[in-house]
Amino acid sequence: MLTELRIAGFGGQGVILAAHIIGNAITLVEKGYATMTQNYGPEARGGAASAALVLSDEPVLYPYLTRPDILIAMSLEAYTRYGPEVKEGGFLLVEEDLVQLDALPQVPKCKIYGIPATRFAEELGKKMVLNVIMVGFFSAITKAVSPEACRAGVEHEVPKRFLDLNVKAFNKGYEYGLELLTHQGERTHPGEEMIPGLELENHTK
């Protein structure tokens, strides 16, 4: 099984750290293979940030993404830029307060889930942990990586003094994801007949 994952957002959101947590979880805990690449061009300074991960149960040969199975979009720009690439039937996980789905002329035909991660992070006391909340959410919704492995990944990547906070953040995202699945089931976006952005908003309220 080969899964292509892109995590994108803006500078300061911890996109690369999120990718590292998942990479660690896959390679060090689940004994799978993960290859992470990122953009290094001048466009990666300050503004947009993106990391790509190829996850597999055998050694990864081709290092780049062809079409992501999963996109974690933490900013509107990330969504508009990378949204159209997502495979049909894949997963699109968004920071729902920052991403308006109708910003793309055609909403991607994939399973879309939203979470107010920034707000949750602020409630936990540090806006910076939104990335780890997104990782928890990703683990719950996609099941691509187990929560135990992700928690170990968090432990590996985060300085000790921030560990408790980050584990809380992970759990928050994970539980919210499970809850969403229980209440809503799988949300398949069929096209014009619903406007997921609005519905997501309804749900979170």
Partner: peptide, 10 residues
């Protein structure tokens, strides 16, 4: 090369 240098793996 840039790809190998910047690529992160186990």
């Amino acid at each position: 090369d840039e790809c190998v240098g910047h690529m992160t793996e186990k």
